[in-house]
Design a protein around this nucleic acid. Sequence first.
DNA 1: CGGAAATTTGAGCAATTTCAACATGGGTGG
DNA 2: CCACCCATGTTGAAATTGCTCAAATTTCCG
Lengths: 250, 250
Amino acid sequence: MLEAIRTNTGYSDIIRNIPLFSGLSEDELEKLTESAEIKRYARNDYIFRQGDAIKHLHIMRDGIVKEFRKSPDGYEFTTSIYESGAMFCKAELFLKDQVHHTDAVAVNTAYVLELPIEQFKKYMERYESISHGLLAALAQYAFMKQLEVEQHMTMTTTEKVASFLRHLCVSHGFDPEGFTLPYKKSLIASRLGIEIETLSRILPRLKEHGIIVNGMRVSFTEPEAGRDAVSCTVIDFNREKEAIIRQEAV
Amino acid sequence: MLEAIRTNTGYSDIIRNIPLFSGLSEDELEKLTESAEIKRYARNDYIFRQGDAIKHLHIMRDGIVKEFRKSPDGYEFTTSIYESGAMFCKAELFLKDQVHHTDAVAVNTAYVLELPIEQFKKYMERYESISHGLLAALAQYAFMKQLEVEQHMTMTTTEKVASFLRHLCVSHGFDPEGFTLPYKKSLIASRLGIEIETLSRILPRLKEHGIIVNGMRVSFTEPEAGRDAVSCTVIDFNREKEAIIRQEAV
DNA sequence: CGGAAATTTGAGCAATTTCAACATGGGTGG
DNA sequence: CCACCCATGTTGAAATTGCTCAAATTTCCG
């Protein structure tokens, strides 16, 4: 596991499209990534564990990583799912306590670009655009978490599931007419904070709200409309959410 | 309502103790606050409403302000409660959409220092310590929101209430032997995302977990210990939370 | 002191979790 | 290539728990 991979070309092409680094020149990108490396994680490998010291800023190159927390009684709850292009540990970088509060494991084979934090912080001081970008990213992240809280407080479980599926479709650019779930249902349930049994019972009932689910196959009957209260709420919620959150973790 | 108050001494003393501005000299503090003003809001006055343009960074001088969101069906859900020393709208400052997404009203007579955002942003560029402090504050805020999500997903309602009361006691420096709730129960319920009836039924049952509540009067029987699963979870949760979050909104 | 607001209490209801049994399914070793 | 196995997902029924509606109290203020 964890085999490091080094190409000749450097990694600047990986981070070039990340908004945070959009202000940097080609040279700067090259320098920023010069002591970074891409690591390969096999299925179920840990990227980090709760209590580990924070050493890197992580940027997903490929694959899927879930970040989760285990409560003392063994309950496991997924806080984020990261996919290609996502950056994680950006908030943790600035907490006094330089230690991970969550576990992160590869859901399937994953390639992750890892930037040593000292180097990143150095660059942050040098280039104002990075710290500005980071402020925006953190603000966005905080806002997204706030929405998540609200979602839990105001939506029914059925609405949350519908909302999740719609968001999934939009953020992945899937065809609303029909697409395949990118992860296992148990992961979805864990992300939504519900039991797999509950999810299993809810999915068939989404038909009434214009979402047909068959196994891993999902299709939206009314891509935009949906006149009932539930769909309205969900759509409004997502419209707002999606307007603000781009290329952010699901 | 909304009468502006101007003293001769300026407002530097109000923000001096805010970590964000700890790096500034006396002169700088003075300049930063020169176009700020303290506003007085009477009970139920709005500080801002959903949809309003964001014009100020707010710093609580005195009183209590609640930030909340109304869902389309009229349900009102309290996002944060701010008290003396708290700063709000710091995250919103950096969202693309320069508009408030929540309402904020004074719970009781409140005095709020309001810094025009243009000026604040100007200072942020000039003084690195401010943007560094802001990064830390936002990271903390995001982390806190993440904990809030987890709290909703993993705790029973009873645990949430217990956790809230313990946090309240610690963050306000109240005497665990006995203190008076600083706000109405309906506000607490709204903050916890539960119905007032549910809270009303839970409070008496907290006796079994070492918390005695009589009217507005609260006292902890076992200030530290509490060997049962519930208290343990709650205490651990709070210990972690409080270690990281200081002078933050409840 | 009187009336409105806030809180408590009761009863029934709706929804999710839990526990348990059963189906599916992909992958492995024989 | 097939049988078997373990992980994953589905389904049923009972138990829990918070919510809704309604009525009774208490508290707060003018």
